[in-house]
């Protein structure tokens, strides 16, 4: 990290509300367990990630971005860690973690198709 003068804190708050149809964000907690709330939040986040990836809307506005890492290139000199690649990968990895949590918490949870595709393509050698 570089130290260049007094740090200016960047706010993480967005201005607009972005509701996903069918997935309310203000919940009445009566009769809802903590686990149900957590599972619902996971479900909503998965929908949110799927939408962002589908709509190609996953690069945060400049004020929310972290400093870019030094560029890396493949054998053909093509850049391998563009902003697009980095943020897409981040969301895909988050999706895998969320799906795994959801499967653990709820035996009836059915993972989205993308999860299996990604699992196959990312499987590490054991």
């Amino acid at each position: 990290k570089t130290d260049s003068g007094p740090r200016k804190r960047r706010s993480r708050w967005g201005d607009a509300k972005t509701e996903i149809p069918g997935l309310p964000t203000a919940i009445a907690a009566n009769g809802v367990s903590q686990a149900q709330l957590d599972n619902y939040a996971i479900h909503l986040r998965l929908e949110e990630i799927n939408r962002k990836l589908r709509l190609n809307d996953f690069i945060p506005p400049e004020k929310e971005r972290s400093p870019s890492p030094p560029p890396t290139y493949d054998a053909h000199g093509r850049r391998t860690n563009t902003r697009e690649v980095r943020y897409r990968k981040k969301l895909e990895e988050e999706r895998v973690r969320l799906v795994e949590r959801a499967m653990k918490n709820d035996p009836n949870f059915r993972p989205p198709v993308e999860y299996h595709q990604q699992k196959r393509s990312q499987r590490p050698s054991e």
Binding site: R12, G14, T18, T25, A29, L44
Partner: peptide
């Protein structure tokens, strides 16, 4: 429903 670091807040 507000976003915080690109995540929609679920609240109760």
């Amino acid at each position: 429903g507000r976003s915080f670091a690109g995540r929609s807040i679920v609240a109760t």
